[in-house]
């Protein structure tokens, strides 16, 4: 029973990761790509970690998986922020040059 539930979570997580990657490849703008990448990937990672936590044997492993997800969240959030900042600064420079 738990296995089936974990399997469903796992497939959902992979689906969201896939959606994020498709967004990365197909969307036109840096900002749109950041949206797709971070939002979909964070959710996908959450579902995968939840599935693995369900399948894991110990509470220790489950809490380690929670920590992994939190770290992934923090890392992708700050990276997305910095990339967007950099893109905005580059845009301002281009506009300043009269392009």
């Amino acid at each position: 029973m738990i296995d089936v539930f974990a399997l469903v979570l796992l497939i959902g997580g992979c689906g969201f990761m896939f959606a994020g990657t498709v967004g990365l490849l197909r969307l036109p703008d840096v900002y749109c790509r950041l949206h797709a990448q971070t939002k979909a990937d964070n959710l996908g990672l959450l579902l995968i970690c939840a599935a693995l936590a369900l399948l894991s044997e110990s509470l220790l492993a489950a809490s380690l998986l929670l920590l992994i997800w939190l770290l992934g969240l923090v890392a992708s959030t700050v990276s997305a922020h910095l990339i967007a900042r950099h893109a905005r600064a580059a845009e301002r420079v281009d506009r300043g040059k009269g392009r």
Binding site: L71, V74, A75, T77, V78, H81, L82, R85
Partner: peptide, 19 residues
């Protein structure tokens, strides 16, 4: 490249480095 005085970067560094 990203000063720790930036709001999110400072928080990142303060949590991740001790971790």
């Amino acid at each position: 490249i990203a000063s720790h005085r930036l709001p999110m970067v400072g928080a990142l560094q303060m949590t991740v480095v001790p971790l």
